[in-house]
Nucleic acid binder design. Structure first.
Lengths: 203, 203, 203, 203
DNA sequence: CATGAATGAGGGTTCATTCAT
DNA sequence: AATGAATGAACCCTCATTCAT
């Protein structure tokens, strides 16, 4: 039985598998957010996903793989949203871009604060995961450095400045999210933006 | 019996105990840095310290207590060194103070990068420990805010600015330390200083 | 599909679980009888049951729960057998009833003397267990007291007499069972019966 | 330096040792009563006795030895007090003797209920201890049997009757003491006495 | 493919006992 | 003799992973 000619989609089997993986990842998010990493056992995740542990292990080779996938998803989602924000901002000037990026970053991380704590602060960091994070950071740094080379040809080392900027934004957003004492988000964004603007704008 | 004989030295018993605690903490630093928190077992720590688990448990009631003590020591050491740097800087202007603080912070954390990752990113955070960290941050914020009220009476909310500043410095230093890709420390200090200065100085 | 097919039989899953629990309890009986409570480790029990510790802990949340279940089983078994003996004795007079009860009690406890020592003399007594024992004793006291009110309306305090009687029978049977020097069981029953009869019958 | 000629006492050294042993035993009583047997650690006992574990082990070869000694002391004390009661009762008739014995037994055990529970119900029973208990019981049985042979020459098996009697009294007294629900002691004594009297007196 | 019972290494912790001082 | 730090076997329990059904 030949598949419908122009069906540009995965075979039913694969589609099912993709959906199951998603169910597991959703469950893992819930369970990690609620129990933390070590107490977020694979059995609990399988339970939450409404399947047996055995099934879970058919889709992920081990617990770490789930974690890695979770982070990858988060990164992809974050990247997409930040890029969308930049697209919207268009060819704005630096301050506006910074504000757009910081706002988007905060939005990305505000979804589930506790989950991000678990993901980024209390979980083991397999090499694969570290590589992903580096790649992301490097990408952002490259983009910003390029822009700086155009806008601020006077800068000594645009790469370093770009990295400091990127790391500052990332760090502060994570800190905001991880913080037990909630800061006012809008003010936070405003202040971070002002700081970074100043750093990038003044010679 | 000359007074020097029984001078400022703890009784043999206590001195021994203090030394043993120190040995355990040193071993814990080594083991945590090498294996991470969960794999840094009490038996491994005792081994590294050249003693039996039982002995270890005569000095610490449980594994968490070791972690808490490690962080407390780190905080005390860090606080002392930052204060010393400030004292040396004397009544300098803000930029110089910022540079002194950042330099001291980097020095404090450069000792053992991996250990700080374990301590601050992948370990459980008992309430006692969180309280310590808050206290430290609040203290720094209070000092800086006070200074800002003097130097920059025009600032809207010195407390918020102070907190953003403190958190920025803390975060960036931790990021630098946690980073697998070593940045040039001096340049890093210079850039962070410049960023914070700008933030605090420009209206 | 004939009704006998799906008749009063538990689903395979449950039936298996029930059987496994029984295997664990049997193993626990053996191990406790042989090693006592503290030396009767969960690993030894699992071993004796031909399974791993992990499996054991899938059926019981902790060691005490095994003990409690063992005692509950013993109580249920004992209660059933004593009631059966009473049913057989029918509306006999007091002496015959006493003989029936004592005989049944001895039979219940004769199964495994050493186990009963462990269960009732050297194990911790979780509140749940104490409650069970009290309930049992109170039940027996209530039944006997009621009967005494009918048969011996002259008695001052049937409740106290009933309790003394019940406790005496329980105690002596346990003593007999715990004893290292086996007494002749029939004579023992005869003497205890005589003593209790006398106590209940003579004014 | 020859010791004082007619000093009928232990050498100072021995006297000191005896006193130290007593201190340890007192401490053990306190600690066992408070913490139970397994949680009544040798360190706690040494602490309570105001000495170091090492010293404790100079007087007792191991923990069990302390337990055995505690029971031995209890038995000696109990025997002495029951004998005293009998002496006071003089050549009374059986009922009076029984009352005297039961009263004395209750008094002996009322001192520290919890300690007796620990000693007789939740501690391991080393062979040495079992031997002591047998010896005591046998002694009491022998005395009573002898008396029965005089007073009740009609009895078939005075030895068995004596043993049942002795065991009944022992058991009930222990039960009373171990009980969580306190019975009125005087009524208890009266009832037990009545029961035993009846048993021994009526043919 | 799904199931979930089974596995068992390994974790933190305790405590009777020893031994250097 | 006294001390008390040190020892380390053993305990109860967890959880990532496997495998028979």
């Amino acid at each position: 039985m030949p598949p419908t000619r122009l069906a540009p989609r995965k075979s039913p089997v694969q589609a099912r598998a993709v959906e199951t993986r998603a169910r597991i990842l959703d469950a893992a998010r819930t369970v990690f957010a609620e129990h933390g990493y070590s107490a977020g056992t694979t059995n609990r995740i399988a339970d939450e996903a409404g399947m047996s542990v055995g099934s879970l292990y058919q889709y992920f080779p081990n617990k770490d793989a789930i974690l890695v996938e979770l982070v990858r998803d988060h990164i992809e989602d974050g990247t997409a949203r930040v890029l969308a924000a930049l697209a919207t901002a268009g060819a704005a000037d630096l301050p506006d871009l910074v504000r757009a990026v910081v706002t988007a970053m905060v939005a990305v991380h505000a979804d589930d604060r506790r989950l991000h704590q678990v993901l980024f602060e209390e979980s083991p960091r397999p090499p694969e995961l570290l590589a992903q994070l580096r790649e992301l950071e490097d990408g952002a740094v490259a983009v910003l450095a390029e822009r700086l080379r155009h806008d601020r040809p006077d800068l000594d080392s645009p790469a370093l400045v770009a990295r400091i900027t990127v790391v500052t934004i990332e760090s502060l957003v994570h800190r905001l999210v991880a913080s037990d004492r909630p800061l006012d988000t809008d003010r936070f964004v405003a202040e971070v933006t002002r700081m970074v603007d100043c750093y990038l704008t003044r010679r």
